[in-house]
Every structure is written in C-alpha cells, then in structure tokens.
Design a protein around this nucleic acid. Structure first.
Lengths: 352, 352
DNA sequence: TCCTGGCACTCGACCGAGTGGAGCGCTGAC
DNA sequence: GTCAGCGCTCCACTCGGTCGAGTGCCAGGA
C-alpha cells in the first residue's frame, strides 16, 4: 500500500475520501462538479478534474465509460480503509441491540447462532462466526458406551455443559465393565485439564511408560487418545445470506449463485476466516484480495474474538464492496468483544 | 378438478397437453399456428384458436397480453399433472446415478444429506428430505451422566447406531451410582422395544404400580419418561437451493429472497411436507395451492418413503412451476423407494 | 508553477415515430 | 364443425434526435 500513499497530498486525499464516501452513499459514479461542491475545498471543478486524472493514473479510481463520473477501484477502497477512513463509534442503539442479544447462559452453539444472526441483522449483510477452538476449555468428564462389536461411543463433556459424541471403530472388542474402568481411570487422571493438555498428556504417557502399565491402563490411554485425538470438526456458522440478494451490484445471477454456494459449502468461507485469525484487530478483505474469483464486488470485515486474552475464533460479515465501512467496522469490533466476554463467563458450575 | 375435466373432449385435451409441454420446453407463450403444427392433429390454426378460446374461458390458459401466445394458468398445470401427463420412466443413467449414491452403511443423517443432494443434483432444483420419524425404531440402550447440580445428560442409542443426547434439568440431584442403577433397570426392561412402545410402557407403569415400586424404580421411570418424552426435533434437510437462482421465471429478487429465507427458516417447508405425508404416492403442489404467497411460480413434487410398509417421512423437490414434470416425478418416486429400502437394511448388528 | 474558466467532444439515457411480426377475434363460405 | 382470410392489437426492435453530465485540453491570470 505504500507505493500509492507516497505521492498523495492532503487535497488529493480529501478528494478521494469524499469521492468514495459519496459513492458508498449513493452508488452513483461521481463527477468533478459535484465532488468540487461537496468536498469542502474551495477549488474549481476543473482542478478537481486534474486531481482525478492523477488518481486514475495511480489506479485508485476509474470511469466505467467516457464521461461518466468516477468510481473507486479495489486499490482505491484499500487505501480508503487503510488510511482515510474515520470510523464512527457505533450508535448507542446499535450497541444496545447487540448487547441485549447475548444470553450468558446459552450454550456455545446457541451463542454462535445468535451472534451471526445479530451481525446479519444489524448490518443487513451476511454474518458469520467461526466456532471457537476448544484449546483452552476443560474436560469435565469422559465416558464410553459399547454400541456393538468393536464399536464404542465416546462421550466428552466439556466445560460442564458442552457434550461431544464420537463413535470409535476398534479392532478389539471391550465389555461395558472394562470400558467403565477405563473411563474411571481417565477421569481420575484428566478431568479438569484442558483438552489441549489432555491430548499432550496422553501422548506423553503412551510414549514414556508403555511397559510399566498394565494392559488395561494401556488400552485406556489408547482409547482416550482416540477419543480426544480427532480435531473437533472445523465449522462456521453463517446467517443472513439472503440479505445479499438485495444489493444491485451483486445482481449477476451466476456470481450470486457461486456466492451462496460458497456459504453452503463453507470451505472457502473457512479459508478466508482462517487467514484473519492471526491478526489481533479488525481486518478487511476487498474484492479479489482473498484470491477468489466469485468474490468480485464483495468485501469481508472480520475481527478475532478472545477469551482470557487468547484468540479463540473469528467473526465477521460479508457484503458488497460498496458498504458503509465506517458503520460496519465498529459493529464487528464491538460484537467480537461482547462475544468474547460472553464466552468467558463461567458456566453453571460442577462443584463436586 | 372434476368441473374442468368434464367438458374437455379429446382434441382439446391434446391441444392443452401439447401447449403445456411446449411451454415447459421453451418458456415462450405458444400461439395457435405453432400449436396447430406441433399437436399432430390435422386441424388449422383457426380451429386451434377456437379451442384455445374455450380453454381460456375455463381458466386453464391465458395470454399475458393481447396477441401474445397463451401460457398455462395454475389450474391448467393442475389438470395437466392430474390427467394429461405421461411420465416417462427415469432413464437408466439417472437410476444408476441415484442408486450409486446410497451407501447402506451410512448413518441416518448422512443418508438424508446424500439423498437431498442427489435430488437437487439430478433435477437441478432444490431437494429436500424430511427426517424420518422414529416411531418404529428400537431403543438399544439408555444411559445417564451427571453433568452438575440437577443437570443430567441422557444418552439414547437407537437402532444400534444413532445417538441422541438430551440434557435434563431436574429438581432433585442424583449421584452417578444412582443414575447407573436406574439405567440398568430401564435397560433391562426396555431395551429392544420401539421408542413408541417404550413411551407407552413407561406411562402405563407409572400409573399402574406407583405404590408397589420402591423409590428408586419410581425415580427411574420418571427419568426415563423425561428422557424419551420429548418428541425428537422435527427437521428437514435441504440442498441445492442455489439452483433456483438460475430460473428466469424466479428472477424477482424480493420473491427469491423470501424463497431462500424460507429454506433457512425451514418452518414453512416443514408445513408443506407435512401436508404430503398422508398421501401414499407422488404429490404435487402448484403455485399458491399451499397457501403461501412467496410460492408463486414455484411447485413442489413430493413422495413419502416408507420402511417395512410404514410411511416414515417425505422427500421432494422445489422448482419453478414451469418444470419438466414428466422427468421430475419419476425421479422423486424412485428416490423415495430407494431411500426407504436403504433405511430398511439392517445396521451392523448388536448380537449381545 | 499552479489554478481557473471556457470550450469542444463523448457517451449514455430518454423519447417518439416507424416498422415488422406474431397472434388474436371475427366472419363468411364450405 | 371446419377453414381461410381480413383487420386489428400489441410487442420488440430500430432509428434519429435531444439533453445532460462529465471529461480533456487549452490559454490566460495569479
């Protein structure tokens, strides 16, 4: 982005900012005369034309055809959000609307659902929330249930409220009483530790002490490893896709189809969100920057959310590139904070 | 529908059929001349015009404006599918494509997903599958897990492969050992019976013998009742909504938005499918017949599927009213049969 | 050197008239 | 009952003309 900013003096920056703001508001190409009037600068339209010609040379704006006004290019938007944009604080109404949506007693899944709904409702675009990674949550309990010949159901209770099922297919068959003893053993050793720590510990024990343990314990560790071993499925919750049908700049049916298809497949959405998880602030992708063709005319605004200082997921919205960044950015930002603190609150305790 | 069929002689029926087939194929209003040529009857265009005027009076066709051709009305479509349509058998390729999609070892959920995907891929419209009701499936096992103060996780294993979790909030607190004994008691009494029977039996025992049982058994029955009591959540699996973006007769953005929104909410889709579950054959809704405004220009083709002679669910497709019924109907039909038999096959057994 | 007003030019949007074609209803003949 | 023909309607398309917005360029002035 440096190469573009270098040669921009204050006047050009003001004009570019005014132009983009005007285009975002009205959706119409903006010409030199209106720009001269609305910019607040006391310069003539002709001067504005000269500046606009320079901006066009730099690839920041372009005209859709001779003698229409100018509209921003992706590079123009980029410069705009990076260094020209003044975000307003979210209006108190909006904050209240968001805040009231969070129920601290809800399960993680419900929290994700309401959050993405919230995002889409407030911004009138598509909202999405990456499910939190379970790295730092505590394993409350683990149980096994025999389903049939060599088929075991593993039940993980996490943080005292989330429940995960996994069906394990095993070579050897275990009786229910054996399974019970294994579960007792694992619970005694591992309950209360984070899933991350559990996994590490199981691997370590398996390596270190394979000879010292009796067969049952070894089998238990093996089983535990299998149960917590799989990464929990990466997933993302999306809401409000249909809002995107309303934007005329996305009216191309084929593009629209690809876009909605991407929301169904979720794979590419995941890819985009994962690119953002490293940043610690609001991040923005404009048009094809994410490398996806069907993303033309779309932008993403994301923010990571964290619990106890550790980033556990990302949320954001997808909308037309021509969106009100000054409004959307603070909304995404504050939503991320609120989700983080809602997740951080303690669940109904398990005092035993 | 009777009132319309009465006065239609063979020639009028042929002409109506040809007209609708032609309109379905080309999407263009069809005029008297082309209709006279393509109908196979040796009558002149003028005669055809007379017949068309009659059909218009009966409300079966209408012209979008003076001196365009005619297009079918919903009533026309209705008559067409009820008594004029000759369904072709599905092409062997299509049958093979559908058949190869079914993996008899898949879980119910996976089976639903692949089925709706299949439907949408083969018909290039939106496919949907109503989850089967669990009336007739056997309870394999029931277990309880104490999550915290008064919070119990009930685990139902059904048919030896499906697992359902339910969190119960109770007044009284139970220890894990109490829960274990209750589960043992319930398993001894109920395992292998259908959920339906289980529910009935629990209710009966509760009423009949409330004094004879000791407190533990009474509590166990109460708990079991709570665990199986809730109907499992009604749900429907939808796939391929985005195919609908391609049809120009659905190009109205606002309508389209409502349509896709309905797919997200699922509530109204459920309503439509439930209306069809009583029928034992392929059923068709045309346009507003379902009573929903946003359904204009859309039709549904559904078929119930059954296991062991009992209807357990419905599947179908949604597409534009102008669809190839002769192709779609047999596809839906055969898919329903194949899904039924796939569900009927025995899961990996639990011989113990 | 930079700004400004002026001017010619371009392009798209809009409008109205004209044209061709598809299709209909009606009528009179067979 | 069927058919051919006539006149009519309406739509889609084209063409020419006008208008307005906007540009690029140039020459004059601070």
């Amino acid at each position: 982005m440096d190469h573009a900013t270098i040669n921009l003096d204050a006047r050009a920056r003001t004009l570019l900012r005014t132009l983009i703001e005007s285009y975002i508001r009205d959706g119409q190409p903006v010409g030199s005369r209106t720009l001269a009037r609305t910019s607040g600068l006391s310069v003539s339209a002709a001067t504005v034309r000269n500046v606009m010609a320079d901006l066009e040379d730099m690839g920041l704006i372009h005209s859709p055809h001779t003698s229409a006004g100018r509209i921003p290019t992706p590079a123009g938007y980029r410069l705009f959000v990076d260094s020209l944009l003044e975000v307003r604080n979210p209006s108190p109404d909006e904050v209240r609307a968001i805040q009231s949506g969070f129920d601290p007693n809800a399960s993680t899944q419900d929290l994700m659902d309401t959050t993405s709904n919230l995002l889409s409702r407030v911004t009138r675009m598509a909202g999405m929330v990456r499910l939190p990674r379970h790295r730092n949550v505590a394993l409350s309990q683990i149980e096994f249930l025999r389903l049939g010949e060599g088929r075991i159901l593993a039940i993980l209770v996490i943080d005292g409220k989330e429940v995960q099922n996994r069906v394990l297919e095993l070579e050897r068959d275990f009786g229910q009483d054996e399974l019970q003893r294994m579960a007792n053993y694992l619970n005694a050793h591992l309950a209360g530790k984070s899933l991350h720590a559990v996994r590490a510990e199981l691997l370590r024990e398996m390596r270190d002490v394979r000879d010292d343990l009796d067969a049952m314990m070894l089998a238990a560790i093996d089983l535990g490893e299998k149960a917590v071993g799989d990464e929990d499925p990466d997933d993302v919750v999306v809401a409000g896709q249909t809002h995107l049908l309303g934007y005329e700049e996305l009216a191309d049916m084929e593009r629209l189809r690809q876009l909605l298809e991407a929301f169904n497949e979720k794979q590419e959405i995941l890819g985009i969100l994962d690119q953002c998880i490293r940043s610690d602030r609001v991040q923005i992708f404009i048009g094809r920057e994410s490398g996806l063709d069907w993303f033309e005319n779309c932008s993403v605004v994301t923010a990571p959310y964290s619990v106890d200082g550790e980033v556990v997921g990302v949320l954001g919205v997808i909308g037309p590139t021509r969106m009100s960044y000054d409004r959307v950015i603070p909304i995404v930002d504050v939503t991320a904070r609120l989700l983080g603190s809602a997740l951080g609150e303690q669940p109904p305790g398990d005092p035993k």
